[in-house]
Design a protein around this nucleic acid. Structure first.
Lengths: 118, 118
DNA sequence: AGGAAACATCAAGGAATCTTGATGCGTCAA
DNA sequence: TTGACGCATCAAGATTCCTTGATGTTTCCT
């Protein structure tokens, strides 16, 4: 499939991921979940955050795939979904040309196949 | 400086970056700028987007550092700022544990220094 | 069975964000 | 110097997003 056709939904997927990442509370949730699974009541304590508010943000994170949940008895455990994190990272790298190292080297390479906009 | 003290502003910086990335128009702008500097009228054409609207989004991108501008005569040229892109990428990698490769390996390593939340 | 804990969901209000059209300012060409 | 172009900015309305408090559901304990 030509790249142009897939670009649209790639952008929309990326937009949804970055939107989920664009809130302080949600970023704090993700930082906590990095340490492992957490149930909602633990997160509520750690974040000093009303339960319904937390629930709202967890749903936002779940909707775009950044977290998954699993229920066990009365508790619901949330954890990071690394596939979605990787998607967010890969869009930065592949679509926007972000690189972890100094920019100079990669840009030199890219300039070889210089593509003009139109 | 202890990591906890720097965490707050890291999160706020990341939030601002991801907010700028959370809009379809802005992502399209960034994709176009990846190919090199563009002036506003070129972007207006490429995106079929009202000029004032484009100007609004360019300001959003500029405010968080994702693009820089340079004026030349009547034109103002915008280009990507790779330092900001790298910041967005590094937060995903370092603070959230995103990795480009399969997750299994890194997580095995990380589990050694298992940190509990509290 | 009854009560409490853990969580989701809903409605309403408030805040932030986006879009649009109008206006203003600097620059260039005639 | 006048007019057109390129762009920013502003005000107003529309839309999306977030927060809060109330209520509902499920599960567990007694």
């Amino acid at each position: 499939m030509p790249k142009a056709l897939t670009q649209g939904s790639r952008i929309l997927d990326a937009r949804d991921l970055y939107h989920a990442l664009s809130d302080e509370t949600r970023l704090r949730i993700l930082c906590l979940l990095r340490q492992g699974e957490r149930c909602v009541c633990e997160l509520t304590d750690d974040l000093c955050c009303a339960q319904s508010r937390l629930s709202f943000h967890l749903r936002t994170l779940k909707n775009c795939g950044l977290v998954t949940d699993r229920s066990e008895g009365r508790w619901i455990y949330y954890k990071l979904n690394h596939d979605a994190l990787r998607k967010a990272l890969m869009f930065l790298r592949e679509d926007l040309g972000a690189d972890a190292e100094s920019h100079a080297a990669t840009e030199r390479a890219r300039r070889a196949d210089n593509g003009n906009c139109r």
